[in-house]
């Protein structure tokens, strides 16, 4: 019996600017109250040697992420992916995303529940 195709989100955190579009796009789509939603953006300041630092933002799909099944059925992209201003999020089959991930550093592949 064929395994059901699994989908995920590939996030290029080199280019995530912390605009919080994904977070609010999801809240708008599903009417989540403030503080709740399918994706949350985190700021991570990496301390580096010689007093240097690197500022990173990192969108994290939560337990509430359903990979926008209703949108995808209509042929639309997930709300977060569609509106992402840095165009740093890709939705697709996990195998395809993994191939893409091999091409560039500073990426993370999420497979929400």
């Amino acid at each position: 019996m064929a395994e059901k195709q699994r989908y995920g989100l590939l996030i290029d955190y080199e280019y995530c600017t912390g605009c919080f579009t994904c977070q609010v796009a999801c809240q708008q789509e599903y009417g989540w109250p403030a503080g709740m939603g399918g994706i949350r953006v985190n700021e991570i300041v990496q301390n580096l040697p010689k007093g240097k630092a690197y500022l990173t933002y990192f969108p994290f799909p939560t337990e509430l992420c359903i990979l926008c099944k209703p949108r995808v059925k209509k042929g639309l992209e997930p709300a977060c992916v569609k509106h992402c201003m840095a165009e740093c999020m890709t939705y697709g089959p996990i195998e395809k995303l993994a191939e893409k991930m091999a091409e560039k550093p500073r990426m993370v592949l999420w497979a929400p529940k």
């Binding site: 605009c19 919080f20 579009t21 977070q23 609010v24 796009a25 809240q27 708008q28 789509e29 569609k82 509106h83 992402c84 201003m85 165009e87």
Partner: peptide, 22 residues
């Protein structure tokens, strides 16, 4: 009920900020 970015618009090509989406 909702705002979506207009994918055909040359300015933002469908993208939007949190403030418009709210």
């Amino acid at each position: 009920v909702k705002i979506e970015g207009n994918p055909d618009h040359p300015w933002n090509r469908g993208r939007l900020c949190a403030r418009v989406l709210a």
